[in-house]
Design a binder for these strands. Structure first.
Length: 651
RNA sequence: GCCUACGUAGCUCAGUGGUAGAGCACUUCCUUGGUAAGGAAGAGGUCGCCGGUUCAAUCCCGGCCGUAGGCUCCA
């Protein structure tokens, strides 16, 4: 038998007999490693640990704690779960069961549904099978064999999948015990590798994600390589619930929903009103600096306008139905653009008027499907931080970059670091359907946007088929506390609608030109942005956004009148204060202020009254001792003016 | 919209085929207390809504509304 050399990630080179398996290699390094290894990369290709290596290779052994290994572990656990479900529900059919981030799921076609008790039953049985330590085997099949195998087993969904696999691709199946599943792999070598798992929840899911197809029953679960990692993950899930804006929004009295008002129609409580005011103040300041004009447009509009813009054709189902006014159909507005186009058109424009930038915190209404509503993140009435910029082609680059810079200015203020910028492009095959049929303009505009982004040194990824119907867009994606992805900011280039609206300007040479329109909403909607901020800050807003900025806490009623003087001073300076004059002990008042996440506490007792000071306590910092009240006032005003970041636990 | 689960006081949650309970919050009184809960009393509910079964329904059944976890969608 010939020898081969194996190069490990530490660059060490080892000699083995040809046909050595990654598992053998792991074994030769140490028995614990062999036990922990779930997959291997052989010359960069992810493989089972039981495949023989026949030539010199670079080898990476993956334990369940590497990214690749964890994915294999998740996927194998999905198989284990499917095997169990097939044992307990012999009439069920398996469909697909991939690994997703930190979790896996498997969709079953089953008579009835899974209950909570069923999950426990399945989990218990899974543990038994795992303990049996069944070997996991791989089987290469040709197309006919594969079709026959799964036909025999009554797995019609698998047959459907096989029929759609490219004929050039190999078909493989993985099995354990008498369970077998169509799968590309790789998988753990034995079921005993699967130890620390938990089934999480069930839900319905359409076959192939198409709502016209049958609804399958999905089970989600998770698995980790160690008990502690599993425990940490489950704890993380608990912790994220505490940051959920729906929970905090209620506790901090920011917003509420009322059944009698309607689903997806939030009521902003006074604390939420303050946050909105602050956000609008920031937006107004910023927009004024960037040369925007503010406009206001009505909530109702004749249907013809949306026919012209194309929205009615594409989005009628997501609009509130028309109301008949004097025999004419009116709609509540689902977006502001058509109105803004009309604002542009109100007066003739020359190149001297461009770029024409108009913004509006306009309230829009969209009939989102009921199952789609989600706290403040997805609502039916929303106030957009909307603006439209009309410019010439020559100005496009600098205008586009200015918008991107505005995003970054905002993100800096809010301390938003985890986001992804995506350039969404059109799909040439959907021209004339999902997208306006202007193939050359699409390519031209996309190139212009790409160039502007590259010139500006922005990091972004490109996604085909995600553009708006009238042009490419830049989306900024963020994630909610519970991991749901949201588009926070969006910026779209519109090369088509201005033409439809007959918008024009007189150029330097006297010719009439059509402007390009940039749609932008860097702060998303008030609803979504505040929902996001609640989670981003965990409810601990920076001073400038805090609904109550300072709690004034008299130690006893003896110092009540001095506390009132401080209250008046601070209020007069524009600070949002709350005087806690309940007949409670100071400890209770502090506790209440802490629970309400008020960032600054000014405690006033007899010492402070005598010296004209306050005792300062800051959240996450604690007692900072006596400060002259005027000095504190000045420093708070400056912190507010600068919109400084919030203090957090780690500070 | 679809699948599943849930809906009891302002909040968090017990509970029962004979029309309801706790803690916190609230009101009043006592206490005047120095950096995360002082004490007492009181008030507060058409048990989501509508219908059915029953002598009797908050509880069982059906429909609707709402919420949650997913699926699908997102100008």
């Amino acid at each position: 038998m010939s020898n081969i050399t194996i190069t490990l990630p530490d660059k060490s080179i080892h000699t083995y007999d040809s046909s050595v398996t990654p598992l053998d290699v792991a074994e030769s390094i140490g028995p614990q490693l062999a036990k922990d290894t779930v997959a291997a990369s052989i010359n960069g290709a992810l493989m089972d640990v039981t495949v023989p290596i026949r030539e010199d290779a670079e080898l990476i052994l993956h334990t369940g704690s590497s990214a690749e290994g964890h994915e294999v572990l998740l996927h194998s656990t999905a198989h284990l779960m499917a095997q169990t479900v097939k044992m307990l529900w012999p009439g069920s059919q398996i469909t697909i069961g991939p690994a997703i981030k930190n979790r896996f799921y498997y969709d079953f076609d089953i008579e009835g549904t899974f209950s909570e008790d069923d999950l426990e039953k399945i989990e218990e049985k899974m543990r038994e099978i795992a303990k049996e330590n069944l070997p996991v085997f791989r089987q290469e099949l040709d197309r006919d064999e594969a079709v026959n195998l799964f036909k025999e087993r009554g797995e019609n969904y698998k047959v459907e999948i096989i029929e759609q696999i490219d004929s050039a691709d190999p078909i493989s199946a993985y099995g354990q015990g008498d369970f077998i599943d169509l799968c590309r792999g790789p998988h753990v070598p034995t079921t005993g590798r699967i130890k620390h798992f938990k089934l999480l929840n069930t839900s319905g899911a359409y076959w192939r994600g198409d709502e016209n197809n049958k609804m399958l029953q999905r089970i989600y679960g998770t698995v980790f390589s160690t008990k502690d990692a599993l425990k940490d993950y489950l704890k993380f899930l608990e912790e994220t619930k505490k940051r959920d804006h729906r929970k905090l929004g209620k506790e901090l009295e920011i917003y509420t929903f009322d059944e009698e008002v309607g689903p997806g129609l939030p009521l902003w409580l006074p604390n939420g009103g303050i946050i909105i005011d602050e956000l609008e103040a920031l937006a107004k300041e910023t927009e004024t600096r960037h040369g925007y004009h503010r406009v206001r447009t009505p909530h109702l509009t004749k249907g013809d306008l949306y026919q012209k813009s194309g929205h009615l054709d594409l989005y009628k189902d997501a609009m509130y139905p028309a109301m008949d006014v004097d025999g004419i159909e009116y709609y509540v507005k689902p977006m502001n653009c058509p109105h803004h186009h009309k604002v542009y058109a109100a007066l003739p424009k020359s190149y001297r008027d461009l770029p024409f930038r108009i913004s509006e915190y306009g309230t829009c209404y969209r009939y989102e499907k009921s199952g789609q509503l989600f706290g403040l993140m997805r609502v039916r009435s929303m106030q957009m931080n909307d603006a439209h910029i009309y410019c010439s082609k020559a100005d496009f680059d600098s205008e586009f970059m200015d918008v991107c810079k505005m995003y970054l200015e905002y993100f800096d203020i809010f301390g938003i670091e985890k986001y992804e910028m995506r350039l969404s492009l059109h799909d040439p095959e959907a021209l004339g359907k999902k997208y306006i049929n202007e193939p050359e303009l699409w390519v031209e505009t996309e190139n212009a946007v790409r160039k502007a982004l590259l010139d500006g040194g922005m990091n972004f990824s490109e996604i085909p088929g995600e553009a708006a119907f009238y042009g490419p867009k830049i989306d900024v994606q963020v994630w909610s506390a519970i991991g749901k992805e949201f588009t926070l900011a969006t910026n779209q280039v519109d090369f088509a609608i201005p033409k439809r609206f007959g918008l024009s300007f007189t150029d330097v040479d006297g010719t009439e030109q059509t402007p390009i329109c940039i749609h932008r909403a860097p702060l998303s909607t008030h609803e979504r942005f505040i929902g996001f901020l609640i989670e981003h800050y965990g409810g601990d807003f920076p001073l400038w956004l805090s609904p109550t900025q300072v709690a004034i806490l008299p130690v006893s009623e003896k110092t009540q009148s001095y506390a009132k003087i401080i209250e008046e001073n601070f209020k007069g300076a524009g600070i949002r204060v709350k005087l806690d004059d309940r007949p409670e002990k100071i400890g209770a008042k502090i506790r209440q202020a802490e629970l309400s996440k008020i960032p600054v506490m000014a405690i006033v007792g007899e010492k402070e009254t005598a010296n004209n000071t306050v005792s300062l306590r800051r959240r996450f910092i604690g007692d900072k001792g006596a400060v002259e009240s005027n000095i504190l006032l000045e420093s708070l005003l400056s912190e507010i003016k600068q919109r400084s970041q919030a203090y957090h636990e780690n500070q």
